[in-house]
């Protein structure tokens, strides 16, 4: 299934969503049947546990989490589950998700690793905006209800996990590796770079491949072929690096001037607004457009 169409409506009926055509059910294997039964029992236990839940009063938050599993009975239709989580000072959305998973439902699925906004695993759609779960303080959301969904415009694998393959493909499409015309002769010989040039590329090198920008971009949502902000930023990082040399820069400009490159950007700044590393993505794209114009002028 995909969130490409519409994010599920928030309604009182938590199970309501945009249904999609499901394939004909295949005959279940004995293993599948046992797993289904086990899932049903687990769901029953969860319901009992939820009912027995004490009133946590003011110190609790309501966590609403998107759930979907392509093969588990009761989860093949997307729905939202609600968890009451005791609030602790400094709690992040990731902390709340971990608490929900480890205390109430171990099948709740999301990517996470470093907890410090550098691995880029936990970009999520939190209260209507792309954010990193680990970097988002629950208190800063100014809401007792925290609603967590997978990144829009990407295929959902399960619960909050989206398929990142398309994002990775776009990143790799811009030749995301350093290339020069001349490499230093000696094995201990470095290429010099001015501190000013390093400063120029610094912000662009901070990208953690979380995919928040791509998910926020309307152009990318409508057209999978568009390289998108992260990949163009990657191209910027190399095109602006003086160590690569002029010939390589021309080659890079050709790559990003193509049909699905920089000219597709309509400077809506949504990518810049959601970037958890504060990379001025739209500015970088604009600067590449200016560079493209300049390099074209040379040939006219």
């Amino acid at each position: 299934m995909s969130t490409q169409t519409e994010p599920p409506e928030q309604t009182d009926d938590e199970t309501e969503s945009t249904p999609e055509a499901e394939p004909e059910p295949e005959p279940r294997s004995p293993g599948q049947r046992r797993r289904d039964e086990k899932a049903a029992r687990a769901a029953e236990r969860d319901r009992e546990a939820a009912e027995a839940e004490p009133d946590l009063g003011d110190d609790a938050i309501t966590l609403k989490v998107f759930r979907y599993d392509p093969e588990v009975e009761g989860k093949t239709e997307p729905r939202f589950d609600t968890f009451q989580i005791p609030f602790t000072k400094g709690m992040t959305v990731l902390d709340a998700l971990i608490e929900a998973r480890d205390t109430y439902d171990s099948s709740l699925t999301f990517r996470h690793s470093c907890r410090q906004a550098v691995c880029g695993s936990d970009a999520l759609f939190i209260n209507g905006r792309q954010r990193l779960g680990c970097q988002t303080q629950v208190a800063d959301l100014d809401s007792d209800v925290v609603r967590v969904e997978p990144l829009p415009h990407q295929d959902v694998v399960k619960d909050l996990v989206v398929d990142m393959e398309h994002f990775y493909d776009q990143m790799e499409a811009v030749e995301p590796y350093f290339q020069t015309d001349e490499t230093p002769d000696g094995e201990l010989e470095e290429q010099f770079q001015t501190p000013e040039n390093r400063e120029e590329i610094k912000m662009s090198t901070r990208c953690i491949w979380c995919g928040a920008c791509m998910s926020s971009c309307n152009i990318a949502a409508d057209d999978n072929a568009y390289l998108g902000p992260a990949a163009i930023n990657k191209a910027y990082r190399f095109a602006m690096d003086e160590r690569e040399g002029e010939n390589m820069k021309e080659h890079r400009m050709e790559l990003i001037e193509q049909e699905n490159g920089v000219w597709r950007c309509q400077t809506q700044f949504s990518c810049t607004n959601v970037c958890p590393k504060d990379i001025p993505l739209t500015e970088h794209i604009q600067e590449l457009k200016r560079e493209a114009v300049k390099s074209n002028l040379k040939f006219w």
């Binding site: 797993r35 086990k38 899932a39 687990a42 599993d69 699925t109 694998v157 399960k158």
Partner: peptide
């Protein structure tokens, strides 16, 4: 607890 084959963390 999670019976799924898909992304079973």
């Amino acid at each position: 607890e999670d019976p799924s084959r898909t992304y079973n963390t």
